[in-house]
Design a protein around this nucleic acid. Sequence first.
DNA 1: TTGAAAGCGATACCAA
DNA 2: TTGGTATCGCTTTCAA
Lengths: 333, 333
Amino acid sequence: MRVTQQDIARISEVSQATVSRVLAGDERVDGQIRDRVLAVMNTHNYRPDVRARSLRQRKTHLIGLVIKREVGSLQDDPFFAMLIAEVVDALAGSPWHLCLDIAADTARQHSIYDELLRTRRVDGLILVESEASDERILRLQQDHFPFVLIGNAAEMPELHAIDNDNFRTAEIATSHLLEQGYGRIAFLAGPQTLTVTRDREAGYRNVVPEAMVAYTEFGAHSAREAAAQLLDEYQPDAILAMDDTMAMGVIQAARERKLAIPQDLGVVGFNDTPLCDHVEGGLTSVNLQIGNMVQWAIRRLVDVIDDTSVLGGRQAIMGCELMVRGSSVRGKL
Amino acid sequence: MRVTQQDIARISEVSQATVSRVLAGDERVDGQIRDRVLAVMNTHNYRPDVRARSLRQRKTHLIGLVIKREVGSLQDDPFFAMLIAEVVDALAGSPWHLCLDIAADTARQHSIYDELLRTRRVDGLILVESEASDERILRLQQDHFPFVLIGNAAEMPELHAIDNDNFRTAEIATSHLLEQGYGRIAFLAGPQTLTVTRDREAGYRNVVPEAMVAYTEFGAHSAREAAAQLLDEYQPDAILAMDDTMAMGVIQAARERKLAIPQDLGVVGFNDTPLCDHVEGGLTSVNLQIGNMVQWAIRRLVDVIDDTSVLGGRQAIMGCELMVRGSSVRGKL
DNA sequence: TTGAAAGCGATACCAA
DNA sequence: TTGGTATCGCTTTCAA
């Protein structure tokens, strides 16, 4: 059988309460007794049972992250790999752990959310890719469940949220292409319903003299098809893609048409994923500092869970940096 | 306050035990009573508290996966993205959830393992990239903790494990290069201490007339440097890389030297990650069916946790498939 | 400073 | 078929 606090108490010849106090580092415990208990804990390799502790303290020390993707499509998206990696990294060494789930359709989302928070499996949630209108958010608010959003929540100032200034990021990326002498810049956007798409489209339109926007699903495959059509019908000399994966789709379509990058076609992506270095000459991309966003979100989430009086505003905007590589710089001979 | 089973019992005017039975779908509950209780549960949006349930049933329904990587290096490795994606997918829709952690150094590994299983945070573990000599395994065995290995465990037949036949996979990949007319094939291997490296090296040596092996760390960067040296000093006409990321490093080094792929240099990787499609012409890669391995591992782990009498052997070998793409096929004009 | 005892919210055994 | 009650392992008052 497993060794419990009861056992430690018996062996140490103290009460269970005292053992608990020693465990909690309670100052009021007599030094000698403390040492004795600690010694017994040590020899018996005692570790408290988090299940019991969770029940009593009403806290699991688990943070939930639910990915909104089709099952089987996650691996194709370096953004999520990045996001998950950053969350795991941010949690490493802390008493918090990550509970990771995936849910594609809305029905499954609901059941996961129920399972995760109504059953109190996790203490709080990080939400990504959610829209302000998102039904999930209403449920979470109703239940007073701790959560932090990574994404646009401008219309709900009461939410804790962090986002990029997507208008600005698109402006910066588009301006860069203009400066490099590209004059016919198209925007290969994501689904039109997403705030992030609309924000970036606005930033793009604000800079570009003549706008051409194509909406498509995320992923290299659909981006490739959309880019092919764009190249054939609109014949842009540069394409700004919603993310690096879509930029890879653009590059594939360009290759099929024997278009040289960056000479015939300039390409810029978002997220600055490791993909960028795998493109010949490198893929120019906007670094959104996802790591910093995740760190902010987790710190904030833990504060909300612990009911720490939260310092500063409820929302933050993260800066970005354009990482200029070969795909958008025409040879300066 | 949260609504508890007690509340449901009071409102339904039955005992708490009956509510529990209804929840468990116990057949012996009178139909009328069952309906009444279910109705009350519904109106009050009741969901059982998993913390209490975990304590009583001594089961958290969490599966642990500890990634063995430097913090901050995960995103660069599509293998892990793939692995995590497959685990999350395999768990989706089941009552099991994933608890994901990362630990780089051995010290941190130990503390994570302690935190995870001695405290009973998770019910079982999936182990990857572990060596048979791995200290972790001894601890897990001593504690009779349920776990399943993804990797080579030939020397410990008592372990539940699934692996590829790495000897064969390397043979297949190398033979393919030979058949394509490459005669001076080098193997860009991982760390020499790993079983997977040694197994593949043996497979490679078994096929190749003249062997040349370079060991290096995982990751595109170190692969690039190692490949550069290999190209300069050994001048192979083909390189078999340990994984796709390392193959990308090889391709980068080849580009710097103006070597055309596949004409001047054939390249083959492992894992068949999405990266393969991002290479011009495509990167030939060995598909290790990681998804199937993960599914096997999780099914087995759940069986072990549930103490189901395990059918079949304790170890399995997964097949593989060479995905031939442009990087290893010289134009047949 | 220490111990006894009351929970936390479920499950499961034993009677009725 | 249903209810009473012990129990899971820990935290946390309340007394002593």
